[in-house]
Design a protein around this nucleic acid. Structure first.
Lengths: 345, 345
DNA sequence: GAATTTTTGATGTACGTAAATCAAAAATGC
DNA sequence: GCATTTTTGATTTACGTACATCAAAAATTC
């Protein structure tokens, strides 16, 4: 049987109340007594029963998630993950609210952050857009003692407690490395389609890709980046134009969302097998394209992991606890059609 | 505030005792009353507070893990994960024992399973070796009502409740697909090094690889499989021989353990950059080789995920509950040097 | 309609911790 | 050595559920 507070009290020859004072850092305990209790804790190997502690505290964590609107399939998947975290609220003692804001709109996001602040939550998770107003709004939240975690896209120069997302420079490098190896000796330029250079994750991916695709000897020509604002129809038009003006196009790297558009353009042009396409995020559309061969490789960040990590960090920060860095690192998954996970039910 | 048993009692206009009888399927409740209570549960959206329930029950789950001995780095990593699950025993109410058996030895494994059976655990997780005695021993455990999960390597024809591991045919396919694309138009045969054809996971990987590496047009010559029994020095000798007898070797697929040997042989021959090497499992050795470029790609199964999944399933089965299939599926990770996770502390 | 069985209610204890109160004891200041 | 402050002890209630006991009420049987 694992030791309880009663065992500590007996071992240290003090009362239960004193043990409680030591365990919960309450004042009014002499140094000698405190040491005595801590020695007892160490010798018995006492571990606090968090389930019982939470039960007794009946603490709850009001959290707010701020996500971009729009038909971006990855973001909708992310929202679904937040919803399913909400379903676990009972067990995890969280109380999650979701706020939606227009995508790529710094001032709207800043307003939403201020709105969140007025609600007085324990923590806020936000998909960041890089803008001075946003940095300022995050500062106000932090000043109020509200924990802030950036989700998926980080915010340079802000006082956020943590970034729950992948290393996007490494993700870009991975894409570049795959592109280089998959193209092998083949000629032709490579096109890059981004969502917006206003978000940090897209800028980082571009940086990593550019460096890795030309590592080694052969220098491959990279066309200048086009921005599709994560909108399928806009992306489709852009890719259509790229295909028309570059008959020798060897590869496309889509580093943002709106892949539906790229897929449609490639397939309508009938050039899906000759062009090596690498994209981000596993969605129903990109999955189908990977299976059919239109897309050659997909990089993915697990939205479920990111949401759960964000919640863990926010709860820890709200309690003034530290986090286990290694545990909160989000991996970059590579999917080929051969290692696709089974379709979610 | 989420509803409690008291709220249900009030809503259904019955006593707390009756609610308890319904919730825990105790006898002595009329159908009409039971329905009334169940309606109250539904309308209030009551969810049992598992933390409080476990606290009240003070239930514990004695589990036994049976792992192969030897200096197989993956297996030692797996054992470390079981150890760290042991450290969480307090929270998870588990009581984990580890038994070690010689690798690739069916009768020793069967003996260990019988030993486990005598200890009367709630569940057993085992890295299987395919042998009739093992199948029979698993049958005896199941007959005693002990839950059994195969770990990493499955057991054909057995009555195990679940397999906590990756789809190794898909893993082999993924390796084959990468090999094909990385080699591109280059000539030369590909060698395959396995641990033993006695374990299901190695046989499955071979099957998948053979199919995928020659998908499409060009037929690449595959040398016949050699078995290194997951032993680094044995593998080193085998690879040394392969290199000596095949000056035009284009690729090596190492589908088992003992990669240290392969790495050493490749580097001593100075042919690490001309030969495309694909291997399994991220260990300190394989990681270093991936970074240096000796290994081109690593497939990995997350041992931590597998252990945690096995524990979840064993606990659920011990309680006669069902599991969420999708949640327990273990992914196949692909690592290039560009998307390597940071070194564990 | 009495005797029997089944169903329900009332109540208490337990799990391990948190948190509060009030009294008693010990340490400190002067 | 007295008054004051600080430290400690003893005790109680609470969190939400599980589980047991005994009595009371209702339903069933004959």
């Amino acid at each position: 049987m694992r030791p309880t507070v009663h065992d500590i009290a007996a071992e240290a020859e003090v009362s239960l109340a004193t043990v409680d004072r030591v365990l919960n850092n309450r004042p009014g305990v002499r140094k000698v007594t405190r040491d005595k209790v801590e020695r007892a804790i160490a010798t018995l190997g006492y571990i606090r029963d968090v389930a019982a502690a939470n039960l007794a505290k009946s603490r709850s964590y009001p959290l707010i998630f701020i996500l971009p609107e729009g038909e971006n399939a990855f973001m909708r998947g992310l929202e679904a993950e937040v919803q399913s975290a909400r379903a676990r609220s009972a067990v995890e003692r969280t109380d999650i609210t979701i706020l939606s804001v227009p995508a790529f709109d710094g001032s709207a996001l800043a307003d939403a952050l201020d709105d969140a602040r007025r609600r007085g939550p324990a923590g806020v998770a936000v998909v960041a857009v890089e803008a001075p107003q946003v940095v300022a709004a995050v500062g106000r939240l932090r000043a109020d003692g509200i924990a802030v975690v950036t989700l998926v896209s980080d915010l340079t120069g802000s006082e956020r407690d943590h970034f729950a997302g992948v290393d996007n420079i490494a993700a870009g490098r991975t894409a570049g490395s795959l592109m280089r190896r998959f193209l092998g000796g083949r000629d032709g330029p490579v096109a890059i389609v981004a969502g917006s250079m206003l978000v940090r994750d897209h800028r980082d991916r571009l940086e990593g890709f550019s460096a890795a695709v030309n590592e080694g000897v052969a220098k491959r020509h990279l066309l200048s980046v086009v921005e599709g604002h994560d909108d399928p129809s806009e992306v489709e038009k852009l890719v259509q134009d790229l295909l028309a003006s570059h008959a020798d196009l060897a590869g496309i790297y889509s580093l943002g969302a709106g892949n539906r558009g790229m897929i449609a353009a490639l397939e309508r042009a009938g050039r899906q097998s000759e062009i090596c396409a690498i994209a981000h995020e596993l969605t129903p559309y990109s999955r189908a394209a990977l299976v059919s061969g239109t897309i050659d490789a997909l990089l993915n960040q697990d939205a479920g992991h990111e949401v759960r990590s964000a919640i863990r960090v926010l709860k820890a920060r709200a309690d003034g606890l530290s986090m286990i860095e290694a545990q909160e690192r989000i991996r970059i998954d590579i999917f080929l059609k051969d290692n696709l996970p089974v379709e979610p039910a």
